[in-house]
């Protein structure tokens, strides 16, 4: 964020990576995303923060062309993901919350397959699959079926599938749950390096510490609406908080009171 981390950060930004204009998605009577307007610039490590059910995954699905919005528009590198889906999907990588992996492929096969689908030739796809397995600490498990992987290993494999074609924009939907601290450190470093080289990362999470440590800019989403957006310093200033307020303080102030109370008092009796 502003205190942080990335060094070059947004400096390489050459334009808009994603733009949402009055984006709305309804499921029957329920409004999952309500008039979302937001711009993410190229080269940003953008944090998308919100409690469960805030509409983060729905927004990502719409941005990646997987879910049609009820109204509003989306542009990814200036392209509409629904009229030019192949162009958009070829430029982005996605690690969905519910991992999209064929579990009866081996890790190596899954990565090679993803590379081939993104248009890499067989030799390059295999070479990159080997490199990614090593990067993710999976080289010894590359020959195992994914169904035999732990949750963290599956997350790593999904991440490998999402970056094998060197996307310009990476959507990560709760990507780090279940990953061990050692691997997490390595992955974070590589993601930060990718951002320094101009890749945009759209990072959805509800883990404040991670977002605070990694992201250059953050949007706080609650009940489908953006409650605050900007760097940590900007949000503090906008919300009238002290200079040492954490992202958690900002979040609670922006969203409202924390959940909890008398309802389950018997738990602590």
């Amino acid at each position: 964020m502003d205190e942080n981390p990335q060094g070059a950060r947004v400096s390489r930004a050459s334009g808009e990576a994603v733009r949402f204009d009055a984006l709305t998605r309804r499921f029957g009577d329920r409004v999952a995303v309500n008039g979302l307007t937001l711009t993410v610039n190229e080269g940003e490590f953008f944090g998308f923060l919100g409690p469960n059910g805030a509409g983060k995954s729905t927004t990502i699905k719409m941005a990646t062309g997987l879910l049609r919005p009820t109204s509003g528009s989306i542009r990814v590198f200036g392209l509409d993901p629904f009229t030019r889906p192949m162009d958009v999907k070829g430029r982005i990588g996605l690690v969905p919350e519910e991992l999209a992996l064929y579990e009866r492929l081996t890790g190596f096969e899954a990565l090679t397959f993803a590379g081939r689908l993104y248009g890499l030739d067989e030799t390059t796809a295999k070479q990159r699959a080997m490199d990614l397995l090593a990067w993710l600490g999976l080289e010894e498990d590359g020959g195992k079926l994914i169904v035999d992987y732990s949750t963290g290993m599956k997350k790593k494999a999904a991440l490998g599938c999402a970056v094998i074609h060197r996307p310009r924009l990476l959507f990560l939907d709760e990507p780090f749950s279940g990953i061990d601290p050692l691997a997490l450190k390595g992955i974070k470093e590589v993601l930060q390096q990718m951002v320094r080289e101009g890749v945009t990362v759209f990072f959805s999470s509800h883990v404040m510490e991670l977002v605070e440590r990694l992201c250059t800019r953050v949007a706080i989403l609650h009940r489908g609406e953006v409650h605050a957006v900007g760097t940590l310093a900007e949000m503090r200033a906008n919300l009238g908080l002290a200079g040492d307020a954490t992202l958690e303080d900002v979040f609670v102030t922006a969203v409202g009171e924390p959940i909890g109370g008398e309802e389950a008092a018997w738990l602590t009796e």
Partner: peptide, 19 residues
């Protein structure tokens, strides 16, 4: 960055289905 989206992936998909 990224790839050309126009190339056919039919063979790769058939192989996946078969496997």
């Amino acid at each position: 960055h990224g790839v050309s989206a126009s190339r056919g992936r039919l063979g790769v998909l058939v192989r996946l289905h078969f496997l």
